[in-house]
């Protein structure tokens, strides 16, 4: 008997098709069929290369961890987040406001100072602050903002995570709300004082998690660009992990990140005399 079999379709597809298929699968998983927007290019090769789609995915929730008690002594994580928001506002000039829910209960670290945020390039006209009484209210406000089309981004400052306490459902809910509306969310929190192990990691459903801390500036003394040490701790579909912290500078004028190399400016450790080369201009005001 001579039965002619119908041949199987070509099993091996071209790499480009695989990418398209993966995109299709992702879309089906999300269930809404919306095409994912291209990510937000950060302008710094080291970070963009690690991120999927060559930039920070929008319409997702990102978590930025500062060092322990960072709001009290170290504003680096706030600075980095402000820089991301400034970039995002620049990229989407016609979209709505940024909703920022600060942790006002803790005034030890002072209150947000808009002139400083504007100095980092943030468009303060598009900033709306939402004061809340506790973290539950902050998460409620964040979720409301994340599910509102027309909001550009929403940010909530959260408390440090207690060891062993995980809240997967909140994270998943926030992420779903962000995906549905296309609003980008940011969670800003200090790392727990002691542990940095898995127990201290709270939201497992965030799109990416960053660790930011202050870094000694290797720049010329006149260069006022802030420098931070940034580490992409994890990202979904990341192309590469930057396991090593990477030092980046933020240019508020041109709204771009750049990697900086070199040793920090010499610190005179053996004498109390500082290496003061600051520009000594007097701004006679008032």
């Amino acid at each position: 008997m001579n039965i002619k079999c119908k041949p199987f379709p070509e099993a091996s597809a071209a790499p480009a098709d695989v990418g398209a298929l993966r995109e299709l699968v992702r879309r089906m998983e999300r269930g809404d069929g919306s095409v994912s927007a291209r990510g937000l290019t950060l302008g710094c090769q080291a970070l963009d290369d690690a991120l999927p789609e060559g930039g920070l995915p929008l319409g997702r929730v990102h978590e930025i961890l500062g060092p322990a008690r960072s709001d009290v002594r170290d504003a680096a994580a706030f600075g980095f987040t402000t820089a991301l928001l400034a970039l995002l506002m620049e990229a989407r000039p016609h979209e709505g406001p940024v909703i920022w829910c600060p942790r006002s209960a803790n005034l030890l670290g002072g209150a947000l100072y808009t002139r400083g945020l504007a100095g980092l390039g943030l468009d303060a006209d598009r900033l709306i602050l939402v004061e809340t009484r506790d973290e539950a209210e902050r998460i409620w406000a964040l979720e409301e903002a994340l599910s509102t089309k027309g909001v550009l981004a929403a940010l909530a400052e959260l408390d440090p995570v207690r060891a062993g306490k995980r809240d997967d459902r909140t994270g998943r809910r926030l992420q779903l709300a962000a995906e549905r509306s296309g609003v980008t969310g940011f969670l800003l929190r200090p790392r727990m004082a002691t542990a940095s192990g898995p127990a201290a990691r709270a939201t497992t459903h965030v799109e990416s998690r960053w660790q930011v801390s202050a870094a000694p500036s290797p720049l010329a003394p006149h260069d006022t660009r802030p420098v931070w040490s940034v580490m992409l701790e994890r990202a979904k579909r990341a192309r590469r992990m930057t396991s090593e912290p990477c030092r980046i500078a933020w240019d508020p004028e041109h709204l771009s990140f750049s990697e900086v190399v070199g040793r920090p400016t010499e610190v005179a450790h053996d004498s109390p005399v500082p290496d003061v080369r600051g520009d000594r201009h007097y701004d006679r005001v008032a």
Partner: peptide, 27 residues
Amino acid sequence: RDDEAVSALLDRLTNRLGPTRVHRPLP
């Protein structure tokens, strides 16, 4: 439509949290 959605969001936040808690900084 988006403007209206944002405006409705601000109303929701204001009515739940209190009138002074949703604000914008001004110079």
